[in-house]
């Protein structure tokens, strides 16, 4: 708990709880400056993780029809069309009729596998756990669909699957227990099963331009620093690392990003803080409130029976 009250760069239950079985912390570095918005990551993820198709709604939000991360979308490519130059000293388009040049930002979003993960902290069943790779995974055999992790995530990554259960997963035919929908919460596992077999996650493997890079987090951070330096030298407009810093409100992301504009432009919170950062303070406060309630009830007895 103290570890949570003061976030540090290392997750609370990794690597120590795994002893010899602990592996280097693995993660993603998603470099949006080379993302071509092809959505191979979305499809490769769905193929590998057997995620159901979840609707065909045309949004008109540029080429994004998946809209957000959720129970059935573990990689989501955001598309942002802007009248802003891609580089600060020209480049891009300078056509007569356009006052400003265009740029089209694309970003493959994913679970951040936070160092201090709100979803993991609040999960009452231990369905969510920190793996030997330092990643955060929902265990589909444990999750009871309490839904607490859903609002706990500062990024809105997790969601409950409302699609019907699979045939081999029939509900009990009892009142209250007879729910027909899947009802569990799902999110990116960083391909936990593939990692165990020594394979790279499906999205990173498919990514045509290596926008999604997978590897030990330490290495990725180094690589990202170099990349940022290069882009800044090349005067890329708005280039910044997001979630790389172990001192941020979630202790840094296990899956972090290089963005070309402010995080909120991509639908990401600008300064996320894990809600459980305040959990000690909250428990103290709760204890006082509880005690106050005792006193208050006792006070009601002052003044006699009627």
């Amino acid at each position: 708990m103290s570890a949570l009250a003061q976030p540090t760069g290392s997750p609370a239950a990794w690597p120590d709880t795994y002893g010899d079985e602990a592996k280097p912390r693995m993660g993603f570095f998603t470099d949006t400056s080379v993302c071509i918005g092809c959505k191979a990551c979305e499809v490769a993820c769905k193929e590998w993780n057997l995620i159901p198709e979840d609707g065909r709604l045309w949004t008109g939000e540029s080429y994004d029809n998946t809209s957000e991360l959720g129970a059935n979308t573990w990689r989501h490519v955001a598309f942002v069309e802007q009248r802003k130059p891609l580089k600060l000293d020209g480049g891009g388009e300078t056509a007569e009729l356009d006052a400003e040049p265009l740029r089209w930002l694309m970003e493959s979003d994913v679970c951040k596998h936070c160092t201090h993960a709100g979803c993991l902290d609040v999960c009452p069943t231990g369905s969510l756990f920190r793996t030997e790779y330092g990643t955060v995974v929902v265990q589909e055999d444990i999750c009871n669909g309490c839904g607490y992790c859903v609002p706990a995530c500062p990024f809105g990554v997790l969601d409950k699957r409302h699609l019907p259960r699979k045939a081999d997963d029939a509900p009990l035919s009892l009142p209250l227990l007879g729910k027909k929908e899947d009802g569990r919460v799902w999110k990116c596992t960083l391909c936990y099963d593939r990692l165990k077999g020594g394979h790279e996650p499906a999205c990173a493997k498919a990514c045509p331009t290596d926008s999604i890079q997978f590897g030990p987090l330490d290495e990725l951070r180094e690589r990202a620093d170099q990349r940022l330096e290069k882009l800044r030298a090349e005067r890329w407009n708005g280039a910044q690392l997001y979630g790389r810093d172990p001192d941020d409100g979630v202790g840094g992301f296990g899956a972090f990003f290089l963005l070309l504009d402010e995080p909120e432009v991509y639908g990401l919170p600008p300064d996320p803080v894990v809600p459980t950062a305040h959990v000690a303070e909250m428990w103290r406060n709760t204890a006082i409130a509880a005690a106050a309630m005792l006193v208050g009830v006792a006070a009601a007895f002052v003044g006699g029976r009627s």
């Binding site: 609040v122 999960c123 999750c143 009871n144 607490y148 729910k179 009802g183 909250m282």
Partner: peptide
């Protein structure tokens, strides 16, 4: 009863007692 009814997987209500987590007010 209300809590179990809200669960996505009511048959797994007892999983609430798999662990005890101080970080989780629900636990």
């Amino acid at each position: 009863i209300l809590l179990v009814s809200d669960l996505g997987r009511p048959e797994r209500a007892l999983n609430m007692f798999r662990v005890f987590k101080v970080t989780s007010p629900m636990s």
